[in-house]
Design a binder for these strands. Structure first.
Lengths: 199, 199
DNA sequence: GATCAAACGGACCGAGCGGTCACTTTGACC
DNA sequence: GGTCAAAGTGACCGCTCGGTCCGTTTGATC
């Protein structure tokens, strides 16, 4: 239990940030098979440095997941304070998809070997989404039978769907987000005509 | 150009079928990273036998994709002759999702290094889906702005969505198929209340 | 600027991968 | 049942990967 020193050296702090950014890009481009060596090369550091900061590749992945979930949760909490519950939920889903459009690491969420910290964070995000969904349901913006789990599961669909086309226009996912969200709405009106069609 | 003999030996025919089945299961369980050695072991043959039948792992994958697309296309063509165009499209999507529920190899479709034969087959399936979509649109069963590409891209979503939950009930995908399909319908009525919610 | 632990780097290791090959087994045909 | 090419086999090869290790460099502290 000899806890390591609390304060990192300046270069260590800098390299850790560079590494996370490089790993994020590498995973987004090459998928989960991206190699640690490539990540190190992209960051301009030695491979050993990667393992100094993260005990294993899985731990590096966990750190990235941690980042993404944190940002998303903060966005969700902010939207809980806005006026229109339906718009808030839609905006949250838009933010989530937009985040993944830049760096799609959604495949990392499947990892069920997550650390306790990541699990806790995930549950917190789940609770935040639950609050958004409850508000939207009470406001009649979505069907009464739509659950939090439904929204969580459907959340990643727009990006995944778009991933099948070779060079998707950068906002194609908006079309599928609109289409899918419409499936969650009650019998009433369709709000906005979906964005331009592909091909 | 010394073309190989036309007729396979009896044991070769048998082993080829066993191999395809084993590979299908192995890919469905372990994803695209499933190893050729494991597939051979599961089929009860030597690793060399795999490469006698399929020149490379990619060619084995292509053969499986070929099978799946063929079956799906046949189903689609059959449904083109039925009475209700909206129901036909919905039934087609149900069949596609049901097929993937047993053996989800949808990730193999992303492979853009496909052989000419697979590409041709894929285009044929695309045409069949296009016909189903056109019929449904003309019958007013889906929105006028929904394209064939939309349907193709959304086709895999129900299974993918479900893949996030650990032990999904075997027909959970039906819920998300219904939800997503509702998003494609025109302003009018929602047809059937979606199947039971998760959790 | 001397000191020293923290941080860095890259050669190195074992495991697992796709794919090959020389040898053995087997089924079709007479 | 004898023959022979087709089919099967598993040790083997080259390569890449995650992870380790130890000699070197660097930044904080005085």
């Amino acid at each position: 239990m000899t806890s390591p020193p609390r304060t990192l050296r300046a270069d260590a702090v800098r390299n850790r940030a560079i590494l996370l950014e490089a790993a994020e890009k590498e995973f987004a481009e090459r998928g989960p098979g991206a190699s640690v060596a490539d990540i190190a090369r992209r960051a301009g550091v030695g491979k050993g440095t990667v393992f100094r900061h993260f005990a294993s590749k899985d731990e590096l992945i966990a750190a990235i997941v941690h980042m993404h979930i944190s940002v998303l949760d903060a966005t969700g909490r902010r939207l809980l304070t806005t006026a229109d519950p339906g718009a808030a939920l839609y905006e949250f889903l838009t933010a989530a998809a937009a985040q993944r459009e830049q760096q799609d690491v959604s495949f990392l969420l499947t990892a069920d070997d997550a650390s306790a910290e990541v699990v806790a964070l995930r549950e917190q995000l789940y609770a935040t989404i639950g609050a958004l969904v409850d508000r939207a349901r009470e406001a009649g913006a979505i069907r009464p039978d739509v659950t939090t789990t439904d929204v969580v599961l459907l959340m990643c669909a727009p990006n995944h769907v778009v991933s099948f086309v070779k060079d998707p226009p950068p906002d194609l996912w908006r079309r599928y987000l609109a289409l899918i969200f419409d499936g969650l709405r009650p019998e009433g009106a369709h709000p906005l005509g979906p964005p331009p069609a592909p091909l």
